[in-house]
Amino acid sequence: MNPPSQTPRLYHTALSPFCRKVRLVLAEKRIEVELAEDRYWEGNSELLRRNPAGKVPVLRIDGRMLAESQAICEYLDETVPQPPLMPADAAGRHEVRRLCAWFDDKFYHEVTQPILEERVWKKIMRSGYPDSRAVKAGLKAVKDHLDYLAGLLEQRRWLAGSTLSLADFTAAAHLSCLDYISDVDWDRSEAVTGWYATIKSRPAFRSILADQVPGIHPAPHYAELDFG
């Protein structure tokens, strides 16, 4: 067990949307954290010791090892309540959790995972050549998801309602991974592009925009705040 006085440490990988989600929340709440990249696919990783599920992120904080991005983020929101990222009312919290699950489950399996697996992780892990059919399916699916977001933003200022929430950071974490390799059609929806530009301009996003993945160069517009 680590003493609570230690600086929090996040074991992460740069292009994991789940790790980025936690990084964004930590930064939004101004929690100082050490970033430790875990190349879990290599033989010297201690990920299983930190999290028996074998997944990043893992956050060492308050003398604990915390796993699962949604659970980590809600822990942070409860222990560091300002600024709040979950609504005060039950219906509002349900909507935030519903949208977080939408991105961490549906969007991830239909879009983030197939595109990143084929275009990024196969190259990094040297595990074969990209499957163009999987990439094509992911690029087709992302259009439907962007349309869904556009529909939400026609009725709301932020994805889950009138205030910034964990739902916005969860969505932005996934989209930022795809934007790194220029796989988001920002011309499809002015509302979605405007929403992303607003959240991308927050100080919490700075470390995300500074990411550099060895051998995978970011899109030219990736770190630009005015990219629409």
Results as ranks from 00 to 15, higher is better:
A134V: 00
E154W: 01
E95F: 09
T163P: 00
T79I: 13
D179V: 02
K122D: 00
E74W: 05
P84H: 06
W102M: 12
T193S: 12
T170A: 15
G194Y: 02
V184D: 07
R97K: 13
E74A: 12
R119C: 02
L166R: 03
D104T: 05
A160P: 10
A160G: 07
P130T: 12
P87F: 13
H145M: 03
A71Y: 00
M86V: 11
L85Y: 05
W121C: 03
V135L: 01
D183Y: 03
A160Q: 04
Q82W: 10
P81A: 13
L164Y: 05
E95G: 03
A173M: 15
K122L: 01
E74Q: 15
E95T: 11
V142F: 01
V184H: 11
D185T: 10
I124T: 07
A172T: 04
H145Y: 12
A90P: 03
K122Y: 00
V120G: 01
S162H: 03
H94L: 07
E74H: 10
H145A: 02
L139P: 04
Q113Y: 06
C177V: 03
M125K: 15
F169R: 05
D187C: 12
D89Q: 14
D185L: 12
H174A: 07
D168P: 04
Y75M: 15
M125G: 10
A71T: 08
V80C: 15
D185S: 08
K136M: 05
R98S: 15
G194S: 13
G161M: 13
T112N: 10
D183W: 02
L159E: 05
F107N: 08
V184R: 14
K123G: 06
R133Y: 00
H109W: 12
P81E: 14
D168Q: 06
T79V: 14
A173N: 14
R126K: 15
A137W: 01
M86Y: 09
G161S: 13
